[in-house]
Every structure is written in structure tokens, then in C-alpha cells.
Design a protein around this nucleic acid. Structure first.
Lengths: 106, 106
DNA sequence: TTAATATGCAACCAAATGGTTGCATGTCAA
DNA sequence: TTGACATGCAACCATTTGGTTGCATATTAA
């Protein structure tokens, strides 16, 4: 559950699209997720493994099928612990930059 | 200002550390940023270029120095447009999973 | 003017990444 | 039981990535 794994998992557009797909319909199987993409099943498997390692999805084995469920907790943690910090500094950072630019171009 | 560039820029721990450093002290020069790391100046230059392309930092040339300023706007956009979507679904997703698990293990 | 300083550019390299193909395993249904 | 279906595993490949070294350019200060 390292934050780095979450960031790296989110870096790939295909993986974000997989999360989107699960957000649209939770609990999809591997084959169902493959139908919404143009790559091979094995490629999707690898992406899902990375998402699962980052704890962004949880899987439930159901017979010969494997269902994939979104886990929004890591995204929430990033939002709170990391993004919040930069959002808080937003106004001051912008005003700093403005002041600096004004000083540079008098 | 594509969202993909922002996600990819945030994927690297060194680049997040650079953002942290700028969050701690805004407007640092390349050399100042280099002092807080163990890699070469050229490596840091590359990371800064990626951050700048993602619009996460803005630079101001000041003589022979170049100052780097945090731009929290893209992070804020990701938080609002992308993360918010998944946070909203948090409770329902978790309850979905719980129901599913209960069904699987009666 | 000259030397030191701050940054820029380009070639190069090893390792990670995203993808493929081929085959194996396990489960359901006829 | 047997065939079809869903997933798993492993080897392999091209490209991207993160890093280096070496040299070039521009600005400040003595």
C-alpha cells in the first residue's frame, strides 16, 4: 500500500481506463474488461496485477471467473495526504508567482 | 495541459520530491534544487522539464538563474475532475464489495 | 577582459515498461 | 468424460525512461 505504487499505477492511461470501466460497472471479470479494449487479454492481466498490487482493486474468485472490484481507499488517501497539501498552498503560491513576475517586469 | 502528462509526471518519486521541495521553498533555482538530491544536475533538469511540460511548475528567468515556481492548478484539476469521481463512489463501492463477499462466504 | 558560475544540449546506456505469442491449468456444461 | 471457456504463467521483444558524461552557451564578478 505504498503511495508510490498507487502513483505509478495511475500513470498509465490504460489502467485509468480500467478503473473507469470498473467505476461504470463494478465487479467485472477479466474477459468483460477485455471487451472494452483492443489489446490482448494477457496485457490486461498485467495491468490488473499492477492495479491490484497498488491496492486500487480487489479481486474475488468466483468459480472459474475472477471479479474485479474498485477500492477507492488509496485514491482517497492520495487526495487527503498528498494533494491536499498542494491545494492548501494554492493561493499563496499563485500570489508568490505574481509578485515575482511583477518584480521582474517593472 | 493534458491530464495524462500530469499523471505521468507525478508517477516518479524524484519528481514528487522536487514538488515537495518547491512546496517547502518556492522559486528555487536549478542548483538549489540539486543540492537536495544525489543525482546529477542534468538528471534534475530532465525531471524539471517533464514537470514544466505537465504545467506543474512555471519558470522565471532571472539573469543567469532560472527560478522554479509551483503551479498547483493541474493537481487541483485532477483532484476535482478525476479523484472526486472515485471518492463519491466510495461508500457504495465498499458496500458492494461487502455484499459480494458475504454472498461468496455464507 | 577573464574566470567562475548557472544553465542548455546531445549522445549514449542500462533498466523498466507495455506489449506480444505460446502453452498450461482449472472449471463448467453437455 | 470431454470439450469449451476463463484465467495463469513464462519467455520474448521494442520502446520508453531515468540516468550518465562531455561539451557549449550565457551571465556575473573580480
Amino acid at each position: 500500500m505504498s503511495m508510490d505504487a498507487v502513483f505509478r499505477a495511475l500513470a498509465d492511461p490504460t489502467r485509468r481506463q480500467l478503473l473507469d470501466s470498473l467505476h461504470h460497472r463494478n465487479g467485472q471479470t477479466l474477459n468483460a474488461l477485455c471487451e472494452r479494449t483492443d489489446m490482448t487479454r494477457q496485457a490486461v492481466t498485467k495491468h490488473l496485477a499492477i492495479l491490484e498490487e497498488a491496492n486500487l482493486i480487489t479481486t474475488v474468485r468466483n468459480g472459474r471467473e475472477k471479479e474485479h472490484y474498485l477500492n477507492p481507499v488509496p485514491i482517497n488517501e492520495i487526495a487527503e495526504r498528498w494533494i491536499g497539501k498542494f491545494e492548501r498552498g494554492r493561493l499563496t503560491a499563485l500570489s508568490d508567482l505574481k509578485k515575482r513576475l511583477e518584480r521582474e517586469e517593472p
